[in-house]
Amino acid sequence: MRGNALRLFAGLALALWLVLPLVPLAIWSVAHGWRFPDLLPQQWSGNAWAYAFSPGSGVLESLGLTVFIATATTVLAALVGVPAGRALGLHEFRGKGIVTLILIAPAIVPGIAVALGLHGVFLRLGLTGTVGGVILAHLIPVIPYMTLIMASVFSSFDTDVEAQARSLGARPVQVFIHVTLPAILPGLMTGALFAFLVSWSQYLLTLSIGGGRVQTLPLTLFTFATSGRNDVTGAIAILYILPGVLILLFTARHLTGRNQSLAARVGA
């Protein structure tokens, strides 16, 4: 009983903490002017939303592109991070400390330094201004997160369980799908959430490598935010924040779901 009440309270607090900052943005997005010291706008208007959804504004296109880039970045980061994290988490080898340091480096070096260094390299490779180039650039801060999270997942993973599955007749692919993947899934989801949100919120790398041609939502948002159009900014900001909040809520449920059901069963 007390556990339920506590969980409800925590859930409400989380929801408030997530939703409260959105309230002014939501009001701005439907305000026709909202001047100090009015508590609420004197006039309302759907113009900002109409603009955000109009084909000419490119906002929806931006949203789609941002989703695509963040998804592709996440998938590629998982393809690298799962095997790399497995190697780091399971095996002791010479130079492991250095490898770990190199992996963390992009996450601790200031983004501006990475962006500047990367721009020259990508320019020579003909990758600037392309979606592929931007995805590759996003992988640089994302892969360390993914790899380190997966390394910690694998460090408590018993590979005998894979050997056991092999011996019970599972082919390597079946072992991965039926045994390894379910075991690492909570960690993988956390890593994917991080990866998605890190890519989702990239501004500097996208601007520098995309050269403005890869117009993700943060770039569009920034353009309006710096020009003082609070109504359009509010509408885009809500579009921008919404997927993150949805993913967070979904993942939070998924991440805790197993423990909860277990607790429920043990309690019953």
């Binding site: 095997p83 490779l125 392309t130 592929g132 995805i135 390597p172």
Partner: peptide, 23 residues
Amino acid sequence: TPLPAGILIMLRSLAAFLLMSTA
């Protein structure tokens, strides 16, 4: 065995991406 294979696949897909996106 699965580790090098996984990295190989990943490198191959990255290379394909690089070629595709050349200006």
